[in-house]
Design a protein around this nucleic acid. Structure first.
Lengths: 147, 147
DNA sequence: ATATAAACGCAATATTGTTGCATTTACCTT
DNA sequence: AAGGTAAATGCAACAATATTGCGTTTATAT
């Protein structure tokens, strides 16, 4: 796990202004072990920033490739720093997540690309869903929203 | 491409009641070439069903494994019949989608499973994002919501 | 120091999805 | 075929998530 560059360096590289909100935001994401929901990020920022600013900042950071927006199928987006190439394993019962790596890189072959009329693939999203051990032990719930 | 069983057979198999709404819904999905948003499905049903019913029906069908809920990162869910094992290639500019197949099956190794504290994996979601040829030719747009 | 574009905060609004409850309906049993 | 029952539906209200416009503030290049 490489230490990722400091928030301000990341921001400057992307030609984004280095503002307190963005720095704090990136610090929060950097110290998180799992993808965070907007609600959790907002809580961590303790209303030092408006919701709208948060959305806009995450949007800008995602476009710059600094953060990744992830769908854990909880009904709202989650965000993490775009560091290494990993994927997520999500418990559909309690929402727990774990990071995993695949032994091979996921690619779309040039032939498939041509057949489908696409010019190029820029990224992909892969999540695995299942049950963690403790949830598998108890009666599996199915519903509800989790962070 | 195998012809999929009729809506009523699918529903009966899953011990779900065969109602006009569900049959119509499944027919719409069966004739769709791409995953559909709730909005599009609702439009196709021409308010013969309440929106709530639609949500509940899709939920039941997804739980039964008859339909799949897909995130194309347009900010809302898309649905398709759960037929064969394919994935999607999505144009981030115009929203076009194409179906693709991977040469290998995606799995999580038992070792990884144990290391992460998970009991089992039940499904996964994989989408590729990129640019289709016509969008790659023109100036790439970035924003906006598409169906 | 200052000009300028980017970022921000606030308010309003849109969109997506959910819940409770009374009514209707599919379908199983007889 | 009739009737009982749980499932499914519709309506209304609500909740959560996300977006837009606009006037003000701020980072940063000069």
């Amino acid at each position: 796990m490489e230490p990722s560059p400091s928030p301000s360096i990341l921001l400057r590289r992307a030609k984004l202004k280095v503002t307190p909100t963005r720095v704090a935001l990136l610090r929060i994401l950097a110290s998180a072990k799992h993808p965070l929901s907007i609600a959790k990020i907002a809580r961590a920022l303790r209303q030092s920033a408006d919701r709208v600013t948060l959305y806009r900042a995450l949007d800008a950071l995602a476009k710059a490739g600094i953060v990744r927006r992830i769908d854990l199928q909880h009904g709202h987006a989650h965000y993490e720093l775009a560091q290494d190439d990993h994927h997520h394993l999500v418990c559909t019962s309690c929402g727990r997540t774990a990071s995993i790596r695949l032994p091979h890189r996921l690619t779309v072959s040039p032939v498939t690309l041509r057949r489908t009329g696409f010019a190029r693939v820029t990224r992909h999203a892969l999540e695995f869903f299942g049950l963690c051990r403790s949830c598998a032990a108890t009666a599996p719930r199915v519903s509800g929203r989790r962070n």
